[in-house]
Nucleic acid binder design. Structure first.
Lengths: 253, 253
DNA sequence: AGCATGCCTTGATCCGGGTCAATTCGCACG
DNA sequence: CGTGCGAATTGACCCGGATCAAGGCATGCT
């Protein structure tokens, strides 16, 4: 609909939805899928996993999934749409902590404080699986695979949190950001070279700790260097190899 | 011994050691203490907790507790001394991830990859409690309090990891760093206004993503503003209130 | 249609902190 | 005792990215 002039070159990719529509088997691409498989689809434990999950949504762009200070009762797996998490300091400045794609999980950082330490805001129309944490925690005690899965998800997020820490150039940050997104889409089975940026330039900049103008300039330069094609929020990676090279300092392995 | 001229003003603080010397009860100030208490000192489960812990050390300054790529088998609680964790990228540049004081735990970020993603290096003579993770994990299945404790430690570390992410001035970073250290010492029962910096200026700078020269300049300025007294690595906070104010954007609540 | 609003892009200017360099200090060493 | 080395401090200079400002281009509202 938008970006008419690019429509021919960049046909709309299929909307990423991590839900096979089968209520019994949950989402095939969901972050919990391995836990579900380990538990066994046929075992009675699965019935319990069924009990503690609840489909919620839709949330419209700008709506909150949870807010800072809300008591922690559940974690959420994104079924469709995109979410940003953010903190707002007392001066009212926003700090974007992360973006979450279909199949990924939000709310893990609330386990310790027992209250959500940040807001979660939908960037477009979004649906979730809501997992009651007390129930999940109890289940984890009985099914080692579920416990292990929770440990792994928590530990994994520890690793990614330190990505944007280093002092890296704007080029490195933006390239790494694009390749990170591409990789995460690829894992869930979506196109790794052509996708829609659900977040504004301002959000990207805030997340990368840059000014929006800088992000804009870097993207323009990447385009002029034929590394990407971009119009509005529709993106195509023309030279992922080179991009990975630029952002390598920030990317895994 | 060192810093003769300051000896009168800054008498050596007691060396921070998180170990009450009672082998049966573990370290009273250790991060696991609440889990131990919850398990109950008298219950048979404690005997199992005993089995999976092992005192290791001493490690001398510069020695590795673990290295990048080592298979993950255990987490370590610092009993005495100080540790830095760091990554070394393929260009050989060091990236300091964190400093760990007596009572704190290292290795949690290795659960997911199953190999340590970073080095842990002793900054001074250090001793540890080594917790076998498979055993710990199994115990967590049987004792909900232990499972909850692991979840909480992981989630807590998620929160602190995002501290140094924001784009903050050198003053903010250094002030927040000093107050963070002070708070962590205070929690373990040591002086919050007078302590020894076990790490070099270079390590501090690397951790804060600043140049060593900048850290040096900021500390000099803080001293000339009568916010701190510092000579070599011996530090006294003269105006913690003001320091907290400067670093507030980076500090909890 | 006409206007407002938000998002994005591009240009001009400025400054915080990085880099390079010189010096000092403390300490281990022969 | 000097020598050498690493850590720390301080000064001079420079650059990447922030900030300020202006303009384009959608979309939504009246």
């Amino acid at each position: 609909m938008q970006s008419k002039s690019l429509a021919g070159r960049l046909p709309e990719p299929p909307s990423p939805i991590a839900d096979d529509g089968d209520e019994t088997r949950f989402c095939g691409t969901c972050a919990f899928s391995s836990a579900c498989i380990a538990a066994g689809y046929d075992k009675p434990e699965l019935a319990e996993l069924q009990c503690l999950v609840e489909h919620v949504g839709p949330f419209r762009a700008g709506e909150h999934i949870f807010r800072t200070g809300d008591p922690f009762r559940a974690i959420f797996a994104v079924r469709a749409g995109t979410v940003k998490t953010r903190m707002v300091d007392k001066e009212g400045r926003e700090q974007v902590l992360g973006f979450y794609l279909p199949g990924e999980v939000i709310g893990l950082n609330a386990i310790y404080p027992e209250h959500f330490p940040c807001d979660a805001v939908a960037l477009d129309t979004a649906y979730f699986c809501r997992f009651s944490f007390p129930a999940m925690s109890a289940l984890a005690s009985r099914i080692p695979a579920v416990q292990q899965h929770l440990f792994r998800m928590l530990s994994k997020e520890l690793g990614t949190a330190s990505l944007l820490a280093g002092d890296h150039s704007a080029d490195e940050r933006v390239a790494a950001f694009l390749m990170d997104l591409a990789g995460r889409y690829a894992v869930r089975g979506f196109s790794a070279t052509r996708f829609h940026l659900s977040m504004s330039r301002g959000d990207i900049a805030n997340y990368l700790r840059l000014a929006a103008e800088t992000v804009s300039r870097v993207l323009s330069r990447f385009r002029s260097q034929r590394l990407i094609e971009i119009e509005g929020r529709e993106l195509e990676l023309l030279n992922p190899k080179k991009l990975r090279e630029i952002g390598q300092a920030l990317l895994p392995e």
